[in-house]
Nucleic acid binder design. Sequence first.
RNA 1: GGUAUCGUGGCCGAGUGGCUAGGCAGUGGUCUGCAACACCAUCUACAGCAGUUCGAAUCUGCUCGAUACCUCCA
Length: 488
Amino acid sequence: MSRKIQIYNTLTRKKEIFNPILENHVGMYVCGPTVYGDPHLGHARPAITFDVVFRYLKHSGYKVRYVRNITDAGHLENDADEGEDKIAKKARLEQLEPMEIVQFYTISYHKAMDALNCLPPSIEPRATGHIIEQIEMVQKILKNGFAYEVNSSVYLDVKKYNASYPYGTLSGRNIEDTLEGTRALDGQSEKKSSVDFAIWKKANPEHIMRWDSPWGEGFPGWHMECSAMSEKYLGKNFDIHGGGMDLVFPHHEAEIAQSNACNNCNPVNYWMHNNMITIDGKKMGKSLGNFINLEEFFIGNHAKLDRAYSPMTIRFFILQAQYRSTIDFGNEALQAAEKGFTKLMNAMGTLENLKHSDHSTYDINELEKNCYDAMDDDFNTPILIAHLFDGVRIINSVKDGKESLTASDLSKMQKLFSDFVTDILGLISAKESGENDLTDEVMELVLKLRGNAKKNKDFSTADLIRDELEKAGIQIKDSREGSSWEIK
RNA sequence: GGUAUCGUGGCCGAGUGGCUAGGCAGUGGUCUGCAACACCAUCUACAGCAGUUCGAAUCUGCUCGAUACCUCCA
């Protein structure tokens, strides 16, 4: 491969040239959703971010195994005072089986990801399907002397671990600071130190989800699943681990510790973290009351939303920001994104029927280089999109006869847009998904009738047709060559 | 309090030590039966203060502000 992809590595806090462990192959693990609630905007960002990474690596010729887990064993609830397993709590609330909840929300997650045109990962393992692997890992860590059992729970001994491996390198902390930052706590804890974390937890009687283990009935600690499943499918040391920035500490830090403690091997070469989505400048969260789920976006049913926004508008909006920046959602910004997206998609359509000429007034190779450079620079999609809009201007100008492209340049341009817009950014027009032959035929007839009316200077009929179609969500566009239509 | 990230024009968002990113909105044109689309031109900018430099929005320091995480509670 002649091109070099640079990835910002959270571990080193700088951009590094990406070199896979195995030539032409990439192993990538991304933290997936906890399926205990509706898929929301917070799920969309990492899914889209790493979907584009997945697509671009594949486009660049790598064979990629993309693993994204489904957390169905349940993590702790942040704001829980009861200390119940997230999933068990929801189950009790709704009088359902835990796995019924999990099934329901897994399906709705998949539907939302599909709507956002995120490719399914290569493997989508579930935590509950890998209890044995997690128990085995806990046993190895115990055997290696980096954990201890207390009262049927097992904790990772972070101080002991830190003597052999540096703890806190990913999040830029050290144990002393962490201990300092922990305010005077009880002393009642069964843990040796407040920095220790559970890798296996005893289940209290009210716990519905529980498994037998060498330490009694319980469930895996909340960081175990990712360590166990990433090792199982990608190996002890793999290329890329992704997730939201909020997971850097403690989740990913714990994963590193667990893997080292178990395998004496640093698990991940490149750590990638997408930034948060904010609403009115604040992180979106249930407790803040600014929580918008994806369904509400698609339908427009939320107090914060002026109207509905299509999945592709959301996708485009997210891609207009670099993945390491926060994105603030607002109606004005969303509507701007929607317009920009429509402009891009219209140009895609125009490009299909463009006429070539005997010389070019524009350098396609330069544009292509700019596009690759943008993506190679830590997947800089906003820069890529800016360059694509350069192409859009050219496409429209060629149509107007103000610029020209040779046949070979034109087909290059078509390939460029197909590669970058459709395959890499994963943007598809609403028309593509909602169109059928019958609609085409009917619209052809309608446009013919309107054309006749215009010829007869019957503009009131022509305008009536246009206005009514507009109400139905179809935009008529007149040009010298005739009229065309598109679904808005 | 600790750690990290960040503060760019009406809105959203890139970016580099010197050469107007881009999208949306605004303004003026061209096109058009009118409109939409499109094209051309154009107006708003780099939180504040000090320093380094021939030159800084880009480097350094300080100030102010914003956001995230700080782990055991099951």
